[in-house]
Amino acid sequence: MTTDIATPATPKKAVTKKIRVKTKATNNRAAVLFFIAPFSILFSLFYILPILVAIYQSLLTVEREGTFGKPTEVFGGFVQYARVFQDSSFWDSILRVLGFGIVQVPVMLGLALLLALLLDSPLVKGKRFFRLAFFAPYAVPGVIAAVMWGFLYSPNLSPFTAITKEINFLGADLVLWSIANVVTWVFVGYNMIIIYSALLAIPSEIYEAARLDGASQARIAWSIKIPLITPAITLTAIFSIIGTLQLLAEPQVFKSFTSAVTSTYTPNLLIYSTASVPNVNLAAAFSVVLALFTFALSFTVLKFTQRKAD
């Protein structure tokens, strides 16, 4: 990428076309403005502004005159944040999704990597079919996937009642991992495609020599392919971590199958139930803390993998 040219002036061109530089520069400014204005305006309105409003709302608190008096919002400083840090259900939900992520993300990405490498190797016939078959669940929205798996887990309606009558997939012990399975089912194919695309971009000459020397496919994958596609794996890891912390649709659906999923089961469920109480200010504070937490975690992963790659 040519990202190192951050200075506005372009001296190289100026040497050869001194006369045209001025008119071109003004033309370009109008063109650049035309290209970047629509996205920038929408981005400010629907990304930056909401974050600012949420921060503002999280600094307010509701005061009432007497028990049944008219509620008024007044500036409360960090009152809501103090509540966030004392709220054990919030931290329980964070710990729950972290535990979920520590197990689910490596399993999902490991499977996605394995399948991408197999698709990229000469070991497999019928690649087109397999690629589509594995990617198909990505076409199923999380809500719909959760509804489907809810039936598949059911002790009476499942095609696998022999198993589901014995093991209670919707009980308090297992339901988190039943949800993890739904998320894995939907997203393995998506991550596989990203990793597979990175593999396709590697010129085959790079490992032709290794193949002629008799290196096995497993060896080529481990020593040549995986190091070259580390950026793609990092990308999928970051998106998966974000997805995990933001878990909402699947547990929300599972609430109607089992009482083991409460309205504070994940951070976003807690935010939703807090906002519908309604306690908008506390919900906004939860949102801000969760966003910062998500950002910090994905940033750490990014930095960590970048340092390893150097």
Binding site: I51, Q246, A284
Partner: peptide
Amino acid sequence: ALALPLFL
């Protein structure tokens, strides 16, 4: 993460 802020 933006859903609630957008609602606000």
